[in-house]
């Protein structure tokens, strides 16, 4: 095993364990911290792939901005009253069976995975051009259109977030009494 493989297995294993921890922890602050550690390990994987720009973005944006946002959410909603939502599907075991079956099926399918022809940027080419340069070249030429549409997605996220979070100022009458479910209103 090369050093890179060892690093990959380390990062991959830790990421899986941390993600499991994040969704199973009872205490949301622990969950958020698990996610934080997971983001750093993701950045580690990017580093082993020579993607130092992505690694930096991962740390700055996810570990920095997104995670702080999660922490704010955790502080704002009342943790003692855990949100109780009725299940969409009545039998949790059914979901478990489905998920397990899907997992086994995918494991089986991976057996016949064969790596396809490499794209325009094998590791050697990236090392020569440096990653940030390669990323910029792709992003602003071939992937310019998707890049622009992603900009629109962010705009919609902002607009939608504001619309849904804004207090309705003149919602007169009965509407108020039934306002908001426990999920969205929290303790506000």
């Amino acid at each position: 095993m090369t050093v890179q493989q060892i690093l990959f297995f380390y990062f991959a294993t830790v990421i899986v364990l941390l993600s499991l921890g994040a969704v199973t922890m009872r205490n949301s602050v622990y969950s958020v911290l698990m996610v934080l550690a997971m983001f750093f390990h993701m950045a580690g994987i990017y580093l082993t792939l020579n993607a130092e720009f992505l690694a930096a973005v991962q740390v700055v944006v996810y570990a920095g901005a997104v995670l702080v946002l999660y922490l704010f959410v955790v502080f704002l909603v009342n943790l003692k009253q855990e949100a109780r939502i009725t299940r969409f599907v009545k039998h949790p075991a059914l979901g478990g069976v489905m998920a397990g079956a899907l997992f086994l099926m995918l494991l089986f399918a991976f057996g016949s995975f064969s790596l396809g022809p490499q794209g325009a940027w094998p590791v050697a080419a990236i090392e020569e051009a440096t990653f940030t340069r390669a990323l910029a070249m792709e992003l602003f030429t071939r992937y310019l259109l998707p890049f622009e549409v992603v900009g629109l997605i962010l705009l919609i996220a902002v607009v939608g977030g504001i619309v849904l979070a804004k207090r309705e100022e003149s919602q007169e009458g009965a509407g108020r009494e039934t306002a908001g479910s426990s999920i969205t209103r929290g303790e506000a």
Binding site: I156, L164, G180, T184
Partner: peptide
Amino acid sequence: IMLYVGLELMALSVYCLVGLLKHDTRANE
């Protein structure tokens, strides 16, 4: 890739539209 970003743009806008009636618990759900 283009397909995926188009899909997300559509989906995100529609999620917001569905939740517009904020005083209605059914809409929230």
